[in-house]
Design a protein around this nucleic acid. Structure first.
Length: 1048
RNA sequence: GCGGGGGUUGCCAAGCCCGGUCAAAGGCGCAGGGCUUAGGACCCUGUCUCUGAGGAGUUCGCGGGUUCGAAUCCCGCCUCCCGCACCA
């Protein structure tokens, strides 16, 4: 059994943890040249012609350009739509008075005068950021209002932020801004996670002048050369990028309380981590054990993915070392398939390899030097006591643990650096063994010993699968091996002669056999890299068993139970991710919680170890509350001891000082966390640890209330990564597109849990839309809002929108909410403008104002800068960011119902016009006069009868309806109509059974149609229309809600 | 292997939980028109097929089933992606 690492990487191998079978994966990382011009700080906005819109003279031309739903070209120009904004339209910004003065207060140059450059847009955003900051708008301290503590996983500053990071933070910010407007005292803090090893690796590579990383820093990240030189020092990297990220967050307009900022190597934070880890230890959740890690023998360091050449993830395979006796010596054969011990016919050694004799415990093992070195890192101490030529072993009769003697034979495929250099030969089940054995024993003197029955492969599976193969073709043998191993593992059954395991499935008894060999025959295990992994220094990595490693026992059942209880008591959004948390808790087990290098906090009781970085970042949400005091100088880190934390977090003991008392009060106010935001990738680790650690450290009333998980951001359908060259740095994107358009682009591109494929065109489309909204605010004046039917309709639609947006935002369905604000409302306003035009009215100024103001408020969480600009342009004081979230008024359902009807009739007309190609001169509409059948069927459907048979039964069984029995055709037609409508439409129609179609058509359809088609409109009842008025006999086709139409 | 999530009309992406609002939202792209000296931007219209009448036909990975009715529910299959730990 065996052998080539090359092959190991391609077939299922046993990974150390629980012996779970796991596929190793090949990773392909195409080299893609980085994109020039993406570097932060190198974008020159004035060169961005896409954004340059020349100023125009006639400002009013840009009145709100709502075209109708389907204005025809046949008739008038569409200008009536614009004219709907009517007399209220004027040159903006030329009026004197308070409002005007106010606008100038808002600062400098305004937008909305007919186009802007990117520079102007950025000026606008910066102006508001500055105003917020000066007004300390987002600083939160306890007060009498209810609170919301909203947090996001803090960033690891080893690179600038890109668009992908922006998504989680933007969602959190939208959430924070929403609740703030709803009257909550929102705490939204931010810190920086300095702890960790990747920065260490970067620093080392910079120090070594690694061209790849230098290129990345200078050209992709745009770090100035002078600064990069300082990056040999890890702290400089973290400081540089955290500042960079912080600036980016401010540029994005995040409503963060920056007074609470910290880094995880701040002395105060370290005191906090000491308290945390010590608490866990006192709760007996920390223990000691040994643990395998990838290891570079040259550097003497653990290696993880970012330390390896090609960023290969070090993965381990677990070999079983089966001891074969040979006189006073042991021949240790390493195998991945211990179950095949029953089928061994011989051992293989490499005739060209160097073997030595090593004292291992009380035994003398024969193995290669490489093997002895590896064992030395895995808790054994082989002592070299001599060499032995491979030839001395050839022909020896080795004693098998399961009985009998087998010969030692030579094989070239045995690699001295893999396993022990000695291999079990199982010719019945291993194609390589079969081929090698038959090559030196063509007559079958040594017969195969099949021990696994596997359907489709006969009595000698390896022989069969090798049947048609060229056995000198290694790759063919590898493929055969892979196929056979997989088949045997999953479907194979142990044959007779396998001791207690006969008749059992391979997949079920493999681990048992390993255990049995270990117990009865002293078999050992040995870790080996699954595939060749090289350190960045070039050395080949091995597996090292770290002794006396500290573990956090996430496997503790009672701990898991309380985590489940916490989870059950909290909201998880989106709901479908909840099950995943439970699964993860299910398989969670001990996890190393300390390591030997990197930035971080030392274990209080064992200063040789540093608290591992996913362990020191589980409950820091509580620390923001204290950090305000540290940053303000109200308390010094050196007095933050065990007693202080016990008091502040748990109320234990007496307050050590007045500040502690204040902190306790603030903690009680802000805790628990109301929302924890994070990306999906953190679900199996940080978010679950967040839950686990809270339950271990805090009383139940302080357990988190809600977790919100979002998907990541893709570029062109691919995950953003440096090696793909598709990273869009956030700050560069802001320069190019503006913060608000990016915020909207990210939010609207996908549902919460979906990965968002952001396209930059739609981002800039957002920009122009926002700009138009600002512009429109400049043309709206407070005033009379109109009392006509269409005004009432518009108001109802606004109320409906507020309801829908609010409900969606409460459930973190930000995409849908934004959709209603950006597009839904837009569509309503278009219809409104069309109705106004039909009646020759201009939009009442008050209504235009109300629409704009509602937009500003609903948009404020999403596009805060734009919303502030709109708010002030409308003449409001203060900040929309802290204004009240709109309350939804009552929706007049009957008006909405009637307008929906008009839209549907209009749609019918435009369909006919389009299909027939007629330029209408006259449109005749015949409204159905009786709705008895329709209403009857509608009632039946509402009552659950949706098929003809049951409807006919109901009608026949009701004296008042029985007379309708003779109209089955009509009934069927009504049923079809009704079923094609939505449930909400049906309900609305049920409620408005007194609805008078003809009257509505006469009063309203006429105007709308006439304006758009420039033709006459006649409305009739369907009964008794003289033939002169109904030349094509259409009137009889009228159905309820479907007037007959004739166009000439 | 274990666990999770997908496959929708040119692309991205809703809908699926709660079956008829679905030829299927919205965005992008594309086409025509408007506006503009022009380009860009913006606005309108169209964008599965057929249609001189509001209609019909064929679609939602594949194959079955349940139902008056399925993108939506059930069963089977194919296929893609992600996580699996000491790493943020």
């Amino acid at each position: 059994m065996r052998r080539h690492t090359r092959q190991l990487a391609r077939r299922p191998v046993h990974i150390i943890q629980h012996g779970r079978l796991r596929h190793t994966r090949g990773r392909i990382r195409p080299k893609v040249p980085h994109h020039a011009g993406q570097e932060a700080g190198q974008v020159r906005p004035h060169h961005n012609i896409l954004w340059h819109v020349p100023e125009r003279a006639g400002g009013p031309r840009h009145g709100i350009l709502y075209g109708g739903l389907a204005p025809r070209r046949h008739g008038h120009s569409q200008n009536h739509i614009r004219d709907a904004w009517g007399p209220g339209r004027r040159q903006p910004y030329v009026r004197a008075g308070r409002r005007e003065a106010h606008r100038h207060d808002a600062g400098g140059r305004r937008l909305g005068q007919g186009g802007h450059t990117m520079t102007e847009w950025r000026d606008m955003e910066e102006r508001w950021q500055k105003a917020w900051s000066e007004a300390r708008l987002f600083e939160s301290d306890p007060d009498s209002r209810p609170k919301k503590t909203i947090t996001v996983a803090y960033p690891y500053p080893n690179s600038p932020q890109h668009l992908g990071h922006g998504r989680t933070y933007t969602l959190a910010d939208i959430n924070a801004r929403f609740w703030r407007m709803r009257g909550y005292n929102v705490l939204f803090p931010m810190g920086f996670h300095y702890t960790g090893t990747p920065i260490l690796g970067m620093a080392r590579r910079v120090a070594g002048g690694d061209p790849e990383i230098m290129d990345g820093l200078l050209n992709i990240y745009g770090v100035p050369p002078d600064t990069v030189r300082g990056f040999a020092e890890p702290l400089n990297i973290a400081n540089y990028f955290s500042a960079e990220i912080e600036t980016g967050m401010k540029e994005m307009g995040y409503s963060i309380d920056w007074r609470r900022r910290f880094t995880t190597i701040h002395p105060a934070y370290q005191r906090f981590v000491e308290w945390q880890i010590e608490s866990l230890r006192r709760r007996r959740l920390i223990r000691r054990g040994s643990h395998p890690v990838g290891w570079c023998p040259q550097d003497g360091n653990p290696v993880s993915q970012h330390d390896t050449l090609g960023d290969v993830e070090p993965e381990f395979a677990e070999y079983t070392i089966v001891k074969f006796g040979w006189g006073r010596h042991i021949l240790p054969a390493a195998t991945l398939r211990p179950e095949t011990i029953f089928g061994v016919t011989n051992l293989w050694v490499n005739p060209d390899a160097q073997y030595g004799i090593w004292q291992v415990g009380r035994e003398r093992w024969i193995m290669t030097e490489e093997c002895a070195q590896k064992l030395a890192h895995q808790g054994r101490r082989p002592v070299h006591i001599g060499d032995i030529p491979a030839s001395d072993m050839l022909g020896a009769a080795a004693e098998s643990p399961v009985g009998g003697h087998i010969p030692v034979l030579p094989a070239g495929f045995v690699r001295p650096d893999t396993g022990t250099g000695i291999v079990m030969s199982v010719p019945a089940h291993a194609p390589f063994d079969h081929a090698a054995l038959r090559a030196i024993d063509p007559d079958g003197t040594i017969p195969s010993r099949p021990i696994i029955a596997v359907s489709g492969y006969g009595d000698d599976p390896a022989a069969q699968i090798c049947g048609g193969l060229d056995t000198s073709d290694e790759s063919a043998l590898e493929r055969a091996t892979e196929t056979l191993y997989s088949k045997e593992f999953h479907t194979g059954v142990m044959l007779e002669g396998c001791g207690p395991y006969s008749g059992r499935r391979v997949s079920e008894c493999k681990d048992d056999i390993r255990g049995w060999l270990a117990r009865k025959f002293g078999a050992r295990t040995m870790m080996e890299m699954a595939g060749e992994v090289r350190c960045r220094c070039g050395a080949r990595c091995i597996v090292k068993m770290l002794e006396k490693q500290w573990f956090l026992d996430y496997g503790d059942e009672s701990w898991k139970a309380s985590a489940r209880r916490c989870l059950d008591g909290m909201e998880v959004l989106p709901p479908e991710i909840r099950g995943e948390f439970h699964n993860i808790i299910g398989w969670l087990r001990e996890r190393a919680c300390a390591r030997q290098r990197g930035l971080g906090t030392r274990l209080p009781w064992d200063p040789d170890w540093i608290v591992e970085s996913l362990t020191d970042s589980t409950v820091y949400t509580a620390f923001y509350i204290l950090m305000k005091y540290v940053n303000a100088g109200a308390i010094q880190p050196d007095v933050m001891d065990w007693d202080l934390f016990e008091y502040v977090f748990l109320g234990r003991g007496e307050p050590p000082n007045p500040t502690a008392q204040e902190m306790r009060q603030e903690f009680l106010y802000y805790y628990p966390v109301d929302t924890r935001h994070s990306g999906r990738d953190l679900v199996p680790n940080h978010l679950t640890f967040f839950v686990m650690n809270h339950t271990a450290l805090f009383p139940e009333r302080h357990w988190p209330r809600q977790i919100v998980v979002n998907g990541s951001v893709l570029m062109d359908g691919k995950k953003m990564s440096k090696s793909m060259g598709n990273i869009i740095p956030l700050r560069g994107a802001i320069l190019r597109h503006g913060a608000d358009p990016i915020r909207l682009g990210i939010t609207i591109s996908a549902e919460l849990l979906q990965d968002a494929d952001v396209n930059l065109e739609s981002v800039s489309g957002m920009g122009t839309r926002l700009e138009r909204m600002i512009r429109e605010c400049g043309e709206a004046e407070p005033g009379e809002a109109g009392g006509e039917r269409e005004d009432a309709w518009m108001r109802s639609r606004i109320h409906w929108t507020v309801q829908a947006v609010t409900a969606n935002m409460e459930r973190m369905r930000m995409r849908e909410a934004l959709h209603d604000v950006m597009y839904g409302m837009e569509r309503d306003v278009q219809w409104y403008a069309r109705r106004l035009a039909a009646r020759g009215r201009a939009m009442p100024p008050g209504m235009a104002h109300m629409i704009c103001e509602m937009r500003a408020r609903l948009l404020a969480p999403f596009a805060p800068h734009t919303a502030e600009e709109m708010w002030h342009t409308l003449g409001n004081d203060g900040f929309v960011s802290v204004s009240e979230w709109p309350e939804a008024g009552n929706v007049d359902h009957s008006i909405v119902h009637d307008e929906d009807y008009l839209v549907s009739v209009l749609r019918d007309i435009s369909n006919i016009v389009r299909v027939s190609g007629i330029a209408p001169r006259r449109i005749r509409v015949y409204a159905a006069e009786s709705r008895e059948i329709y209403d009857t069927v509608l009632e039946c459907v509402a009552g659950g009868a949706a098929d003809m048979r049951s409807i006919m039964e109901i009608i026949s069984g009701d004296d008042s309806k029985r007379h309708l029995r003779v109209y089955p055709k009509e009934i069927a037609a009504c049923l079809k109509d009704i079923l094609s409508e939505s449930v909400t439409t049906r309900e609305a129609r049920l409620r408005h059974s007194t609805f008078d179609e003809r009257k509505l058509l006469e009063e309203h359809l006429r105007d709308v149609v006439r304006t758009e088609y420039d033709c006459t409109v006649s409305v009739y009842g369907s009964g008794g229309v003289p033939e002169s008025e109904d030349p094509k006999r259409k009137a009889r086709l009228a159905r309820a809600y479907h007037p007959a139409i004739y166009i000439e």
